[in-house]
Computed example of a mutant assay.
Amino acid sequence: MNQLPMHDALKSLAWLEGTWKTEYVGQGKYPTIKPFTYHEEIVFASIGQPMFNYVAQSWHPEKKTPMHRETGFLKVIPGTNKVSLLLAHNFGLTTIEEGEIGDNEIVLKSSSITRLTMGCKDPAVVKISRKFKLIGEKLHHTVYMATTTTTKETEHLQAVYTKQTAIV
């Protein structure tokens, strides 16, 4: 597929386009689980519309086995600093997160979370918030969540990424 020009609505996020990969392990934690580490690759790809296609894939740092995958769209409302992230997660969760674009950052909070009624483990995720922030040449990504057993939003994931490729 030919690369289409970036939509004007994405120009404030042009720094985000490309493939980002953890150089060092990311950190995962939560009050109800054992802390863990992971590697991850995130791709933000322009498709000529006011959105990026988004795919994030994490894997175990030693075993190299897949851990988590989420795919969706990061959409900007043209003429605004408003942004939404629509994701489907491989463990049966879908999320809509909405927020704003700041100075080299995106801050999002969940407005809708749905999960499969069969095959999902408890506790259920009830809130998610996240921040993507460019600091120098590194992309910092932090995710907070609340569940049916831990109702206060608590840090869950934290990782720093280096850009691998710029999609041209």
Rank of each mutant, 00 (worst) to 15 (best):
1 M>K: 09
1 M>D: 04
2 N>P: 14
4 L>W: 00
4 L>A: 13
5 P>G: 00
7 H>G: 09
7 H>C: 09
8 D>K: 11
9 A>E: 13
10 L>A: 09
10 L>K: 04
11 K>H: 07
12 S>A: 03
12 S>W: 05
13 L>H: 08
15 W>K: 01
15 W>S: 02
16 L>E: 03
17 E>S: 10
18 G>I: 12
19 T>N: 01
20 W>L: 14
20 W>Y: 15
21 K>G: 05
21 K>W: 06
21 K>P: 04
22 T>L: 12
23 E>D: 14
23 E>T: 13
24 Y>R: 14
25 V>S: 15
25 V>E: 14
27 Q>K: 13
28 G>A: 15
30 Y>E: 05
31 P>G: 03
32 T>F: 01
33 I>W: 02
36 F>R: 12
36 F>E: 13
37 T>A: 05
45 A>F: 04
47 I>F: 12
47 I>L: 14
49 Q>R: 02
50 P>I: 00
51 M>K: 12
52 F>L: 02
52 F>A: 11
57 Q>H: 11
57 Q>W: 03
58 S>V: 01
64 K>W: 13
66 P>T: 12
67 M>I: 12
70 E>G: 08
71 T>S: 06
73 F>D: 09
74 L>V: 12
74 L>I: 13
75 K>R: 14
76 V>R: 12
76 V>I: 15
78 P>R: 12
79 G>T: 08
80 T>E: 04
82 K>C: 13
83 V>N: 03
83 V>D: 04
84 S>K: 07
85 L>P: 08
88 A>K: 11
92 G>D: 01
92 G>E: 06
92 G>L: 10
94 T>L: 11
96 I>F: 02
96 I>Q: 12
96 I>R: 10
99 G>P: 09
99 G>L: 03
101 I>L: 02
102 G>T: 12
105 E>L: 10
109 K>Y: 01
111 S>Q: 05
111 S>M: 02
112 S>P: 10
115 R>V: 05
115 R>C: 06
117 T>W: 00
120 C>H: 08
121 K>F: 07
123 P>T: 06
124 A>D: 10
127 K>V: 00
127 K>H: 13
128 I>P: 07
129 S>A: 07
130 R>F: 00
130 R>V: 03
130 R>K: 15
134 L>G: 06
139 L>H: 09
140 H>P: 14
142 T>C: 00
143 V>Y: 04
146 A>K: 03
146 A>C: 01
147 T>S: 10
150 T>D: 09
153 E>T: 06
153 E>Q: 07
154 T>N: 01
156 H>S: 10
156 H>G: 02
158 Q>F: 04
160 V>L: 07
161 Y>A: 06
161 Y>K: 07
162 T>C: 06
164 Q>Y: 07
166 A>M: 05
